[in-house]
Amino acid sequence: MKVNRSTPPATVVPVLAYPDVRAAVAWLGAAFGFVERTRIGESHRSQMSIGADGAVIVAERRGQDPAQRDDSRNLTRVRVEDVTAQFERACAHGATVVEPVTDREYGERDCTLEDLAGHRWQFAETLADVAPEEFGCETVAPWPDRATS
């Protein structure tokens, strides 16, 4: 798998929505020992490491009442070698397209699909190694396996 400093190094990364990203980051760090690695805007997103090789992305919940339960607000991000092939395969088997294959400024190509039960999956392929600072983000602490990169 290609390396990109703008993304967590894990293969599977849950993306969890919270009403207050900064409060969630503080709580997850204090309660579970997660470590913030990359801050994307003050309240937009944060990448956190979990143990030696786990990761989670904490994302802002836009325009949603925190009391309202909506399972589509979270998704699971999966890194693959060829996102276009993954997209075509999933669509051939009836996946619902939430977002088609898209190239991102942070060196990734991704797509978001819903499975037969409505779970959201984002498949991502690394195109280039991009430092978070190159697109306005902040490295809070380097990911452990990238500390010497």
Score class of each variant (00 low, 15 high):
residue 8 P to F: 05
residue 11 T to R: 08
residue 12 V to S: 00
residue 12 V to T: 07
residue 13 V to G: 00
residue 14 P to G: 11
residue 14 P to Y: 11
residue 15 V to D: 09
residue 16 L to F: 10
residue 16 L to M: 13
residue 19 P to R: 07
residue 20 D to T: 00
residue 27 W to I: 03
residue 28 L to H: 01
residue 28 L to K: 03
residue 28 L to N: 08
residue 29 G to R: 00
residue 30 A to S: 15
residue 31 A to Q: 04
residue 33 G to S: 10
residue 33 G to R: 09
residue 33 G to H: 07
residue 41 G to V: 07
residue 41 G to R: 01
residue 41 G to E: 08
residue 49 S to K: 06
residue 50 I to H: 06
residue 50 I to E: 02
residue 52 A to R: 09
residue 55 A to E: 03
residue 55 A to K: 00
residue 56 V to Y: 06
residue 57 I to N: 07
residue 59 A to H: 06
residue 60 E to I: 06
residue 61 R to G: 09
residue 65 D to P: 00
residue 65 D to T: 05
residue 68 Q to P: 01
residue 68 Q to W: 00
residue 71 D to Q: 11
residue 72 S to L: 08
residue 72 S to G: 06
residue 75 L to K: 05
residue 76 T to R: 06
residue 77 R to H: 06
residue 78 V to Y: 08
residue 78 V to G: 04
residue 79 R to L: 12
residue 79 R to A: 13
residue 81 E to S: 15
residue 82 D to Q: 00
residue 86 Q to D: 12
residue 87 F to Q: 07
residue 91 C to A: 12
residue 93 H to A: 13
residue 96 T to Q: 14
residue 97 V to L: 07
residue 98 V to Q: 03
residue 99 E to I: 05
residue 100 P to L: 05
residue 101 V to F: 03
residue 101 V to C: 06
residue 102 T to Q: 11
residue 104 R to A: 14
residue 105 E to P: 11
residue 105 E to N: 14
residue 106 Y to H: 08
residue 106 Y to M: 02
residue 110 D to F: 08
residue 111 C to I: 02
residue 113 L to V: 07
residue 115 D to R: 09
residue 115 D to I: 10
residue 117 A to F: 13
residue 117 A to M: 11
residue 122 Q to F: 01
residue 124 A to F: 06
residue 124 A to H: 04
residue 125 E to H: 12
residue 127 L to K: 09
residue 128 A to E: 15
residue 130 V to F: 11
residue 135 F to N: 04
residue 136 G to S: 13
residue 138 E to W: 01
residue 140 V to I: 15
residue 141 A to E: 15
residue 143 W to F: 14
residue 144 P to G: 12
residue 144 P to R: 07
residue 144 P to H: 10
